[in-house]
Computed example of a mutant assay.
Amino acid sequence: MIENMLQDQASGLRRLTKPSLTKVIAVTGGKGGVGKTNVTLGLAISMARQGKKVLVLDADLGLANVDVMLGIRARRNLGHVLAGECTLQEAIVEGPHGIRVIPATSGTQSMTELTPQQHAGLIRAFGSLEEDMDVLLIDTAAGISDMVVSFARAAQDVVVVVCDEPTSITDAYALIKLLSREHHVQRFKVVANMVRSYREGRELFAKLTLVTERFLNVTLELVACVPLDDKVRQSVKRQKIVVDAYPRSPAALAISSLANKALTWPIPKAPSGHLEFFVERLLNNREIVGESYVE
Protein backbone atom coordinates (compact mmCIF):
# COMPACT_ATOMS: atom_id res chain seq x y z
CA MET A 1 0.00 0.00 0.00
CA ILE A 2 2.83 2.38 0.93
CA GLU A 3 4.62 1.51 -2.32
CA ASN A 4 1.51 2.24 -4.37
CA MET A 5 1.00 5.59 -2.63
CA LEU A 6 4.59 6.64 -3.26
CA GLN A 7 4.32 5.57 -6.89
CA ASP A 8 1.18 7.69 -7.24
CA GLN A 9 3.06 10.69 -5.81
CA ALA A 10 6.01 10.06 -8.13
CA SER A 11 3.65 9.93 -11.08
CA GLY A 12 2.12 13.27 -10.09
CA LEU A 13 5.49 14.93 -9.68
CA ARG A 14 6.74 13.55 -12.99
CA ARG A 15 3.67 15.03 -14.63
CA LEU A 16 4.40 18.37 -12.97
CA THR A 17 8.08 18.39 -14.00
CA LYS A 18 7.75 16.83 -17.44
CA PRO A 19 10.62 18.42 -19.44
CA SER A 20 8.35 19.62 -22.23
CA LEU A 21 6.00 21.16 -19.72
CA THR A 22 7.60 22.88 -16.76
CA LYS A 23 10.78 24.80 -15.96
CA VAL A 24 11.50 24.90 -12.20
CA ILE A 25 13.55 27.82 -10.84
CA ALA A 26 14.33 28.48 -7.17
CA VAL A 27 15.18 32.05 -6.21
CA THR A 28 17.11 32.27 -2.96
CA GLY A 29 19.59 34.54 -1.28
CA GLY A 30 20.98 33.29 2.01
CA LYS A 31 19.75 36.33 3.93
CA GLY A 32 16.67 38.52 4.01
CA GLY A 33 16.47 41.97 2.49
CA VAL A 34 18.37 41.24 -0.72
CA GLY A 35 15.27 41.63 -2.91
CA LYS A 36 14.68 38.04 -3.97
CA THR A 37 10.87 38.29 -3.81
CA ASN A 38 10.94 41.36 -6.07
CA VAL A 39 13.14 39.44 -8.49
CA THR A 40 10.90 36.34 -8.34
CA LEU A 41 7.69 38.27 -9.00
CA GLY A 42 9.34 40.43 -11.63
CA LEU A 43 10.38 37.28 -13.46
CA ALA A 44 6.87 35.84 -13.12
CA ILE A 45 5.13 38.90 -14.57
CA SER A 46 7.70 39.32 -17.35
CA MET A 47 7.30 35.69 -18.38
CA ALA A 48 3.51 35.88 -18.20
CA ARG A 49 3.59 38.87 -20.55
CA GLN A 50 5.25 36.59 -23.08
CA GLY A 51 2.33 34.20 -22.89
CA LYS A 52 3.90 31.75 -20.46
CA LYS A 53 1.80 30.03 -17.80
CA VAL A 54 3.60 30.84 -14.57
CA LEU A 55 3.06 29.47 -11.06
CA VAL A 56 4.78 31.14 -8.09
CA LEU A 57 5.26 29.17 -4.87
CA ASP A 58 5.83 31.32 -1.79
CA ALA A 59 8.15 28.96 0.06
CA ASP A 60 8.85 31.38 2.92
CA LEU A 61 6.61 29.36 5.20
CA GLY A 62 6.91 31.63 8.25
CA LEU A 63 7.24 35.16 6.85
CA ALA A 64 5.27 34.99 3.62
CA ASN A 65 4.90 38.22 1.64
CA VAL A 66 4.25 37.34 -1.99
CA ASP A 67 0.50 37.91 -1.70
CA VAL A 68 1.04 41.19 0.17
CA MET A 69 3.47 42.50 -2.44
CA LEU A 70 0.98 41.70 -5.18
CA GLY A 71 -1.95 43.25 -3.30
CA ILE A 72 -3.73 39.87 -3.28
CA ARG A 73 -6.04 38.81 -0.48
CA ALA A 74 -5.69 35.05 -0.17
CA ARG A 75 -8.37 33.18 1.75
CA ARG A 76 -6.32 29.98 1.84
CA ASN A 77 -2.61 29.25 2.01
CA LEU A 78 -0.14 26.43 2.59
CA GLY A 79 -1.06 26.39 6.27
CA HIS A 80 -4.61 25.38 5.34
CA VAL A 81 -3.24 22.74 2.97
CA LEU A 82 -1.08 21.18 5.67
CA ALA A 83 -4.00 21.28 8.09
CA GLY A 84 -6.08 19.33 5.61
CA GLU A 85 -8.59 22.16 5.23
CA CYS A 86 -8.14 22.47 1.45
CA THR A 87 -6.16 21.03 -1.41
CA LEU A 88 -3.11 22.70 -2.90
CA GLN A 89 -5.13 23.37 -6.03
CA GLU A 90 -7.78 25.19 -3.94
CA ALA A 91 -5.12 27.42 -2.36
CA ILE A 92 -3.94 28.82 -5.70
CA VAL A 93 -4.91 32.43 -6.38
CA GLU A 94 -4.56 34.53 -9.52
CA GLY A 95 -2.24 37.52 -9.66
CA PRO A 96 -1.49 40.25 -12.22
CA HIS A 97 -1.18 39.22 -15.87
CA GLY A 98 -2.61 35.80 -15.06
CA ILE A 99 0.25 34.51 -12.92
CA ARG A 100 -0.84 31.88 -10.42
CA VAL A 101 0.32 32.04 -6.81
CA ILE A 102 0.49 29.51 -3.97
CA PRO A 103 0.59 31.75 -0.86
CA ALA A 104 2.26 30.74 2.39
CA THR A 105 1.51 31.71 5.99
CA SER A 106 2.90 34.78 7.72
CA GLY A 107 3.68 35.05 11.42
CA THR A 108 3.25 31.36 12.19
CA GLN A 109 6.35 29.84 13.74
CA SER A 110 5.01 26.30 13.44
CA MET A 111 5.21 26.62 9.66
CA THR A 112 8.98 27.05 9.94
CA GLU A 113 9.31 23.85 11.97
CA LEU A 114 7.48 21.27 9.90
CA THR A 115 7.52 17.72 11.18
CA PRO A 116 8.44 14.88 8.82
CA GLN A 117 4.72 14.07 8.56
CA GLN A 118 3.89 17.65 7.54
CA HIS A 119 6.77 17.73 5.08
CA ALA A 120 5.40 14.51 3.59
CA GLY A 121 1.94 16.09 3.46
CA LEU A 122 3.31 18.96 1.41
CA ILE A 123 4.96 16.47 -0.90
CA ARG A 124 1.67 14.61 -1.33
CA ALA A 125 -0.03 17.90 -2.13
CA PHE A 126 2.42 18.56 -4.97
CA GLY A 127 1.87 15.02 -6.21
CA SER A 128 -1.83 15.73 -6.72
CA LEU A 129 -1.40 19.18 -8.28
CA GLU A 130 -2.74 19.32 -11.82
CA GLU A 131 -1.95 22.93 -12.66
CA ASP A 132 -0.97 23.48 -16.29
CA MET A 133 2.22 25.55 -16.25
CA ASP A 134 5.31 26.43 -18.24
CA VAL A 135 7.36 27.79 -15.34
CA LEU A 136 7.32 27.16 -11.59
CA LEU A 137 9.15 29.89 -9.64
CA ILE A 138 9.97 29.09 -6.00
CA ASP A 139 10.57 32.08 -3.73
CA THR A 140 12.48 30.53 -0.82
CA ALA A 141 12.86 31.79 2.71
CA ALA A 142 16.06 33.45 3.91
CA GLY A 143 18.68 31.33 5.61
CA ILE A 144 19.72 27.71 5.20
CA SER A 145 16.85 25.81 6.80
CA ASP A 146 15.88 22.30 5.71
CA MET A 147 12.99 23.70 3.66
CA VAL A 148 15.23 26.19 1.83
CA VAL A 149 17.66 23.40 1.00
CA SER A 150 14.84 21.07 -0.09
CA PHE A 151 13.32 23.61 -2.45
CA ALA A 152 16.72 24.61 -3.83
CA ARG A 153 17.55 20.96 -4.50
CA ALA A 154 14.13 20.54 -6.08
CA ALA A 155 14.82 23.15 -8.75
CA GLN A 156 16.46 22.75 -12.12
CA ASP A 157 18.10 26.16 -11.70
CA VAL A 158 19.10 27.90 -8.46
CA VAL A 159 19.23 31.70 -8.68
CA VAL A 160 21.14 33.33 -5.82
CA VAL A 161 20.29 36.99 -5.27
CA VAL A 162 23.07 38.95 -3.59
CA CYS A 163 23.69 42.62 -2.83
CA ASP A 164 26.87 44.49 -2.00
CA GLU A 165 26.89 43.97 1.74
CA PRO A 166 29.34 41.77 3.67
CA THR A 167 26.50 39.83 5.34
CA SER A 168 24.80 39.18 2.00
CA ILE A 169 28.00 37.82 0.46
CA THR A 170 28.79 35.74 3.55
CA ASP A 171 25.30 34.24 3.74
CA ALA A 172 25.16 33.55 0.00
CA TYR A 173 28.48 31.74 0.30
CA ALA A 174 27.19 29.71 3.27
CA LEU A 175 24.14 28.61 1.27
CA ILE A 176 26.21 27.69 -1.79
CA LYS A 177 28.67 25.80 0.42
CA LEU A 178 25.89 23.79 2.08
CA LEU A 179 24.15 22.94 -1.18
CA SER A 180 27.36 21.96 -2.94
CA ARG A 181 29.15 20.01 -0.22
CA GLU A 182 26.21 18.20 1.35
CA HIS A 183 23.66 18.06 -1.48
CA HIS A 184 25.76 18.01 -4.67
CA VAL A 185 24.31 21.14 -6.26
CA GLN A 186 27.18 22.42 -8.38
CA ARG A 187 25.80 25.17 -10.62
CA PHE A 188 24.41 28.49 -9.42
CA LYS A 189 23.14 31.53 -11.27
CA VAL A 190 23.86 34.84 -9.51
CA VAL A 191 21.87 38.08 -9.60
CA ALA A 192 23.75 41.13 -8.34
CA ASN A 193 20.89 43.22 -7.01
CA MET A 194 20.65 46.88 -6.03
CA VAL A 195 23.98 47.81 -7.61
CA ARG A 196 24.92 51.34 -8.66
CA SER A 197 26.47 50.27 -11.94
CA TYR A 198 27.22 47.23 -14.06
CA ARG A 199 30.83 47.53 -12.94
CA GLU A 200 29.76 47.36 -9.30
CA GLY A 201 27.73 44.25 -10.10
CA ARG A 202 30.76 42.60 -11.71
CA GLU A 203 32.88 43.50 -8.69
CA LEU A 204 30.26 42.04 -6.35
CA PHE A 205 30.22 38.84 -8.38
CA ALA A 206 34.03 38.76 -8.25
CA LYS A 207 33.95 38.95 -4.44
CA LEU A 208 31.66 35.94 -4.30
CA THR A 209 33.60 33.91 -6.87
CA LEU A 210 36.87 34.69 -5.06
CA VAL A 211 35.81 32.62 -2.05
CA THR A 212 33.87 29.94 -3.93
CA GLU A 213 36.72 29.22 -6.35
CA ARG A 214 39.14 28.91 -3.47
CA PHE A 215 37.13 26.56 -1.29
CA LEU A 216 34.32 24.99 -3.35
CA ASN A 217 33.96 22.95 -6.51
CA VAL A 218 31.08 24.94 -8.02
CA THR A 219 30.29 26.96 -11.12
CA LEU A 220 28.82 30.43 -10.71
CA GLU A 221 27.29 32.44 -13.55
CA LEU A 222 26.41 36.11 -13.32
CA VAL A 223 23.04 36.28 -15.07
CA ALA A 224 21.91 39.83 -14.19
CA CYS A 225 22.94 43.10 -12.59
CA VAL A 226 19.80 44.84 -11.32
CA PRO A 227 20.44 48.53 -10.58
CA LEU A 228 19.53 50.33 -7.38
CA ASP A 229 16.30 52.03 -8.40
CA ASP A 230 13.93 54.14 -6.30
CA LYS A 231 11.07 52.95 -8.52
CA VAL A 232 11.33 49.58 -6.76
CA ARG A 233 10.57 51.17 -3.39
CA GLN A 234 7.76 53.20 -4.89
CA SER A 235 6.18 50.15 -6.49
CA VAL A 236 6.33 48.21 -3.20
CA LYS A 237 4.37 51.01 -1.53
CA ARG A 238 1.74 50.66 -4.26
CA GLN A 239 1.67 46.85 -3.77
CA LYS A 240 2.85 46.39 -7.31
CA ILE A 241 5.96 44.89 -8.85
CA VAL A 242 8.35 47.28 -10.55
CA VAL A 243 8.06 45.57 -13.96
CA ASP A 244 4.33 46.27 -13.79
CA ALA A 245 4.28 49.69 -12.13
CA TYR A 246 7.30 51.21 -13.92
CA PRO A 247 8.13 48.93 -16.87
CA ARG A 248 10.68 51.34 -18.37
CA SER A 249 12.62 51.88 -15.15
CA PRO A 250 16.22 50.55 -15.00
CA ALA A 251 15.40 47.79 -12.50
CA ALA A 252 12.35 46.67 -14.49
CA LEU A 253 14.33 46.49 -17.72
CA ALA A 254 17.07 44.44 -16.05
CA ILE A 255 14.56 41.96 -14.57
CA SER A 256 12.68 41.67 -17.87
CA SER A 257 15.96 40.93 -19.62
CA LEU A 258 16.71 38.25 -17.03
CA ALA A 259 13.28 36.70 -17.65
CA ASN A 260 14.04 36.47 -21.38
CA LYS A 261 17.34 34.79 -20.57
CA ALA A 262 15.79 32.39 -18.04
CA LEU A 263 13.29 31.12 -20.58
CA THR A 264 16.22 29.92 -22.72
CA TRP A 265 17.88 27.95 -19.92
CA PRO A 266 17.80 24.28 -20.92
CA ILE A 267 15.63 21.84 -18.99
CA PRO A 268 17.34 18.51 -18.14
CA LYS A 269 16.04 15.65 -20.26
CA ALA A 270 16.25 13.22 -17.36
CA PRO A 271 14.93 13.76 -13.82
CA SER A 272 18.10 14.85 -12.02
CA GLY A 273 16.47 15.95 -8.81
CA HIS A 274 14.03 18.85 -9.09
CA LEU A 275 10.56 18.07 -7.75
CA GLU A 276 11.05 14.34 -8.08
CA PHE A 277 13.73 14.70 -5.41
CA PHE A 278 10.92 14.95 -2.89
CA VAL A 279 9.76 11.47 -3.79
CA GLU A 280 13.32 10.15 -3.80
CA ARG A 281 13.71 11.52 -0.31
CA LEU A 282 10.55 9.75 0.80
CA LEU A 283 11.71 6.47 -0.67
CA ASN A 284 15.11 6.77 0.99
CA ASN A 285 14.03 8.15 4.35
CA ARG A 286 12.85 5.33 6.57
CA GLU A 287 11.94 7.71 9.35
CA ILE A 288 9.43 9.60 7.20
CA VAL A 289 7.96 6.41 5.77
CA GLY A 290 7.80 4.85 9.20
CA GLU A 291 6.23 7.80 10.98
CA SER A 292 3.99 9.10 8.24
CA TYR A 293 2.56 6.07 6.56
CA VAL A 294 2.73 3.18 8.94
CA GLU A 295 0.01 3.53 11.55
Rank of each mutant, 00 (worst) to 15 (best):
D164C: 12
K177T: 03
I176H: 01
T219S: 13
S197W: 04
C225P: 02
E221L: 07
N193K: 09
I169T: 11
V135P: 00
A251C: 06
L210A: 15
V135L: 10
K177D: 03
K189L: 13
L228I: 08
R238H: 13
L136H: 01
C163R: 04
D229K: 11
S180I: 09
R214H: 15
H183E: 06
P250R: 05
S168K: 01
F205G: 07
R153I: 03
I144V: 15
D157C: 09
M133Q: 07
I138Y: 07
A254H: 00
M147S: 15
V190P: 02
V191A: 02
M133K: 02
A254E: 00
R214Q: 15
V148T: 15
L178D: 06
V190C: 07
R196S: 13
L204P: 00
E200L: 08
I169P: 05
N217Y: 08
E203H: 14
D157F: 06
A141L: 04
E182T: 09
L137V: 09
K177Y: 07
V191Y: 00
L208N: 03
Q156I: 02
V242F: 01
T140N: 08
V243A: 01
P227E: 05
A254L: 04
V232E: 00
V159K: 02
T209V: 15
L178V: 15
D229Y: 11
V160G: 03
I176C: 08
C225G: 06
R233C: 10
A155F: 07
Y246E: 14
V195L: 00
P166E: 12
N217H: 14
A224E: 10
